[in-house]
Write a protein that binds this DNA or RNA. Structure first.
Length: 429
RNA sequence: GGAGGAGUGGCAGAGCGGUUGAAUGCACCGGUCUUGAAAACCGGCAAGGUGAAAGCCUUCGGGGGUUCGAAUCCCUCCUCCUCCGCCA
C-alpha cells in the first residue's frame, strides 16, 4: 500500500510511474480523490478529537464533583456530556466512513514503478536486461519436450497426479522425486552460504498475512482458500517469510534481515489453457526456494543487484542458458517497484520459461506490514522489502530434462551429483 | 473436542470504574563522577493521528457493549498455559 505522504509529496513521480502501468488520465484522478479524502479525514479527526477532549475533561470534573459531594452539579454535567457523546458518535461514524473510502481506493493503487522501469503493457514490452551470451543448446534429431521425457524415464506421472488430485498437480517418482529434493537442498545450501537464515514456515496463512504482503485483495482468486478456517494456501514463501516481521520495529543494526525458505507453492491460475500449460510449464503446485531481504531504504537497490547475482550464480551452476528481463510497467506485479525476471531456455520445446522473479517493493509492502526500523534519531521509518525465487523448481526441472537429454540418458549437472547420488537418469529396466 | 487459568510498555511485573499511557525492576540511551571501565547518582526511554510548537486525541490480545468516565464490569472471538480425550 502506497503511503499517502508519497502521493502528496511526489505527485509528479507518482503520475509518471502510474502511466507506465497503463493508468489513463481518468484513472489517475484517484490520486486527487485520495488526497481530498485525506484532507477530509484530517478535518473530521480534528472535530472529533475536540469533542472527545471536552468529554474527557468534563468526565474528570464529574468525578471531582462526586468526590466533594456535589452530586447535583455532577448530574447536571452528566446530561451535558451525554449530549456531547451523541454528537461525537455521529462524527465518529463519518470519520470511519472516510477512512474506509481511503482504504478502498488505496488498496487498489499499485506500487509506483522505479524510474528505470520501461513503458509498456504486455510481456513483449519487457526489455532484455541481459541476453544469453553463448549459443543455445542444439539438440539431436528426435529430441523430446520434458513431458514426453518424464513419461519415457518414468520421472513424473501427470495422469496419476490428476487422478489423485486434479490436473496441474504432478506426481514425481523415483529419480524424478530425488531430483526435486536435490535441487531444494542445493538451493537452500547456497542461500545459507550467502548468509540467509533458513526458515520452514507454515504453508497456510490467515487473511491478515495475505493482506499485508498484498496478495489480498488484488489476487484473491489466485489463492486456494479454506473457507471453513479462513486460511489461504501460500502462493509463495514470500507471504509467511515477509510476515515474520509484520508490525515489528527493528534496530537499524538489524538490517539487512536475510531469510530463505523452501515451500511448496499453490496457485489456482484460473483460466489458463493451451500449450503454455503443458507438462510442468504451469502447474497448481510447485516447489520453490525463496530469498527475502529486509533492507535499509538507502541500500535496497544495491541489495537487489546482489540478489540478482545470487540467482544468476545458481543458473550458471546448473549450466542452464538464461536471460534476464527488466519488466515493463504493465507486466510488473501489483506490489513491485522494480522486477527482473529470469528465463531459462528449454530446448526441447524451444521456449523461454520464467524461473525466477526478483523484486524490490520499496516501502509498499512495509507500509502494509508496518515493518520499520529506528533511524539515528530514534524515529521509526519504513523498511524496504525485497524477494526473489532462488529458484522455482518445476520449470528448472523441465529445462534440465530437455537440455540435458543424451543418448545415454538425462545428464545431471555436476553441482547436483552430490545431492542426487547419480549422474545420469537412464531408461527404466 | 471437553474443563479450568491467563493475556498490560523490549522483557519481567503492579494496577478499589475517576490526573494510570499506565507503579516498580531489568534492559537500552544521554549525563555526572573516573586516567578509562565498573559501581553509584541524575535524566530520558511505546506506537499512531493532528499540529510550527505547546498541546489534544486514540491504543493495556481483537471486536462489540454498559457508563458522564473502562486496563479495570459484561458479551464474543483469538492466542497461550494446565488437565482430560483423540492422534502422526
Amino acid at each position: 500500500m502506497i503511503e499517502i505522504q508519497i502521493l502528496r509529496d511526489e505527485k509528479e513521480r507518482v503520475i509518471t510511474g502510474l502511466k507506465k502501468r497503463g493508468f489513463t488520465t481518468e484513472r489517475l484522478s484517484i490520486i486527487d480523490q485520495i488526497i481530498d479524502l485525506d484532507d477530509q479525514r484530517k478535518a473530521s479527526q480534528t472535530r472529533l478529537d475536540g469533542l472527545l477532549s471536552e468529554r474527557n475533561s468534563l468526565s474528570a470534573e464529574i468525578g471531582n464533583l462526586f468526590k466533594s459531594g456535589q452530586a447535583e452539579e455532577a448530574n447536571k454535567l452528566k446530561i451535558k456530556v451525554q449530549d456531547i457523546k451523541q454528537t461525537a458518535e455521529t462524527h465518529e461514524a463519518e470519520l470511519e466512513d472516510i477512512k474506509q473510502k481511503i482504504e478502498d481506493l488505496l488498496v487498489h493503487l499499485p506500487n509506483i514503478p522505479h524510474a528505470s522501469v520501461p513503458d509498456g503493457q504486455t510481456p513483449e514490452d519487457n526489455i532484455i536486461h541481459k541476453a544469453w551470451p553463448g549459443d543455445l543448446p542444439q539438440l539431436p534429431e528426435g529430441a523430446l519436450p520434458h513431458w514426453e521425457l518424464a513419461e519415457k524415464y518414468q520421472l513424473i506421472d501427470f495422469k496419476l497426479g490428476a487422478f489423485i488430485t486434479g490436473s496441474g498437480f504432478p506426481l514425481y517418482r523415483g529419480k524424478g522425486a530425488r531430483l526435486q529434493r536435490a535441487l531444494i537442498s542445493y538451493f537452500l545450501d547456497h542461500a545459507q552460504r550467502a548468509g540467509y537464515e533458513e526458515i520452514l514456515p507454515p504453508y497456510m496463512v490467515n487473511s491478515d498475512s495475505a493482506y499485508a504482503t498484498g496478495q489480498l485483495p488484488d489476487k484473491e482468486g489466485q489463492m486456494y482458500h479454506m473457507e471453513k478456517d479462513d486460511l489461504y494456501l501460500i502462493p509463495t514463501a514470500e507471504v509467511p517469510l515477509t510476515n515474520m516481521y509484520r508490525g515489528q520495529i527493528l534496530a537499524e543494526s538489524d538490517l539487512p534481515v536475510k531469510i530463505t525458505g523452501y515451500t511448496p507453492c499453490f496457485r489456482r491460475e484460473a483460466g489458463s489453457y493451451g500449450a503454455d500449460v503443458k507438462g510442468l510449464n504451469r502447474v497448481h503446485q510447485f516447489d520453490k526456494v525463496e530469498i527475502v531481504q529486509i533492507a535499509h531504504p538507502k541500500h535496497s537497490y544495491a541489495t537487489l543487484q546482489v540478489m540478482l547475482d545470487h540467482v544468476a550464480h545458481l543458473l550458471d551452476a546448473l549450466e542452464l542458458p538464461y536471460r534476464i528481463l527488466h519488466l515493463c510497467g504493465g507486466d510488473m506485479g501489483f506490489t513491485s517497484a522494480l522486477t527482473y525476471d529470469f528465463e531459462v531456455f528449454a530446448a526441447g520445446q524451444q521456449k523461454w520459461l520464467e524461473v525466477s522473479s526478483v523484486s524490490n517493493f520499496e516501502s509498499f509492502q512495509a507500509n502494509r506490514l508496518k515493518t520499520r526500523y529506528r533511524d539515528e534519531n530514534g524515529k521509526p521509518q519504513l523498511v524496504h522489502t525485497l524477494n526473489g525465487s532462488a529458484l522455482a523448481l518445476a520449470r528448472i526441472v523441465a529445462a534440465l530434462m530437455e537440455n540435458n537429454q543424451t543418448e545415454k540418458g538425462i545428464r545431471i549437472p555436476e553441482i547436483l551429483i552430490p545431492y542426487t547420488g547419480f549422474d545420469f537418469i537412464t531408461l527404466p529396466e
